[in-house]
């Protein structure tokens, strides 16, 4: 029988190492998504203000972050910050900074969209019942905003998880890098291991993102108005 590449997965602690790499991916994603939600909520609320200077600044930030490829941003922070400012940022910290900046911009825009999509008469009919401003937000505006926001925010989160695969290029040893290392180490003994190892990485990403995106679909169905 031909030598199967899958064997490599169970040699030594290869599988555990892959899971370790996955943890780095998940950890960076979780921190970035968490920070993006907090800052994004703030940014989104700021973006609904009518002040022209605020509008202009947030617009520039949003467009800048969106137009730049994430890889360029990663290089800019990781190499640029080190060379120009003498900051010794680790790859992981750089990654968190870049993904938080990006996530905040995207999240902010989603929050702004959700907030302005609540029609004015929703505020008014709350007021006409005698509800106070605080109550109107608590019982009418915020629940509707969250319903519109959640599926979109979850989509953004899965996109962020996937994009973390770029951080290989600034030397962070995450799941994809570990996979590469394993394949390289076994190049001569098991030349066809690439398919199996990358296949395994594929499933690991799938296991992380699939439940999250299912959740988004289910919420969308449950809350469609």
């Amino acid at each position: 029988m031909q030598d199967l590449g899958i064997r490599v997965l169970f040699m030594g602690n290869n599988f555990i190492r892959l899971l370790g790499g996955l943890w780095i991916t998940v950890k960076i994603s979780l921190i970035s998504v968490g920070l993006s939600i907090v800052f994004g909520l703030l940014l989104g609320m700021i973006m609904t203000l009518k002040n022209p200077i605020v509008k202009c600044l947030t617009k520039i930030y949003l467009e800048f972050i969106r137009i730049m490829p994430q890889l360029v941003l990663l290089f800019l922070v990781y190499f640029g910050a080190t060379k120009s400012f003498g900051l010794q940022l680790s790859g992981e910290v750089s990654a968190v900074i870049v993904f938080t900046m990006w996530g905040t911009a995207e999240m902010g825009d989603l929050v702004r969209g959700a907030l302005i999509s609540i029609p004015k008469h929703q505020y008014e009919s709350g007021a006409a019942l005698g509800l106070e401003s605080r109550q109107i937000y608590r019982y009418i505006i915020v629940p509707q905003t969250l319903r519109r926001l959640l599926p979109l925010a979850i989509n953004l989160a899965t996109r962020m998880v996937k994009t973390t695969s770029l951080i290989v290029l600034i030397g962070v040893v995450e799941v994809l890098k570990v996979a590469q290392q394993i394949i390289e180490a076994n190049r001569y003994t098991v030349p066809d291991s690439a398919l199996w190892i990358y296949g395994c990485v594929f499933f690991l990403y799938f296991i992380v993102c699939w439940p999250v995106s299912r959740l988004a679909v289910r919420m969308e169905k449950k809350w469609e108005n």
Partner: peptide, 19 residues
């Protein structure tokens, strides 16, 4: 908020709370 309890209002657009 007190006065509006005594003055009810129904609007043109369907302004029920959709959630």
């Amino acid at each position: 908020s007190e006065v509006r309890q005594k003055i009810g209002m129904v609007f043109q657009s369907y302004e029920l709370f959709p959630h």
